[in-house]
Amino acid sequence: MAPPAGPVRAPQAGDAAGPRIRAARREAGLTQQDLAAAAGVSRQTVIAMETGDYAPSVYLALKTAQVLGVTVEALWGGQT
Rank of each mutant, 00 (worst) to 15 (best):
K63F: 06
A61R: 08
A28Y: 08
E50S: 11
T64F: 07
P4F: 12
T45N: 10
L62F: 10
P56V: 01
P7V: 14
G52M: 09
A5N: 00
A48Q: 15
D34P: 06
T31R: 08
T31F: 11
A37C: 00
V41I: 08
A74F: 14
Y54A: 06
Q79G: 14
Q32A: 10
Q44V: 12
A65R: 14
L62W: 12
A5C: 00
A13H: 15
G29I: 05
P3G: 09
L35K: 03
T31C: 08
S42I: 10
R25H: 06
W76T: 03
W76Q: 04
L60Y: 08
A39I: 04
V46W: 13
E73M: 13
R25W: 01
T71E: 11
A55M: 12
A2H: 08
T31Y: 08
V70P: 01
D15P: 04
P11R: 13
Y54S: 11
P56A: 09
A10V: 09
D34G: 05
Q79C: 02
S42E: 07
P4W: 11
R26S: 01
V67H: 03
A13D: 15
D15N: 03
G69R: 12
G29A: 05
L68T: 03
D34C: 03
D15L: 04
V41S: 05
E27K: 02
G29Y: 03
A37P: 02
A36D: 07
L68F: 01
P19T: 04
M49K: 03
L60C: 01
Q66G: 04
T45M: 14
Q44G: 02
M49A: 02
A36H: 10
R26D: 04
A74D: 15
G52I: 06
K63C: 05
A74Q: 15
V58H: 01
V8I: 14
I21V: 07
G69T: 08
L30R: 04
L60T: 13
L62H: 09
D53Y: 12
V70S: 11
M49S: 00
I47D: 05
A28S: 11
K63P: 03
M1K: 13
Q66P: 00
A61M: 15
V8C: 02
R43C: 02
G6Y: 05
E27Q: 12
G78L: 04
S57I: 10
G29R: 00
G14H: 08
Q79A: 15
V41N: 06
Q66D: 14
G18R: 03
M49G: 01
L62T: 06
A2W: 07
G52E: 06
A17E: 03
M1L: 13
Y54E: 02
P3K: 15
A39W: 09
L75V: 07
A13S: 13
A10I: 02
V67I: 08
A28V: 05
L30S: 05
E27I: 00
Q44D: 02
A16G: 13
D15Q: 03
P7G: 09
E73P: 04
A13R: 15
Q33K: 12
R22N: 01
Y59I: 08
V8S: 10
T45C: 05
I21G: 03
A37H: 07
E27M: 01
A61T: 07
I47R: 12
I47W: 14
A39E: 06
P11G: 10
A48V: 04
V70H: 09
M49Y: 15
R25L: 03
E73Y: 10
R22M: 07
L75D: 01
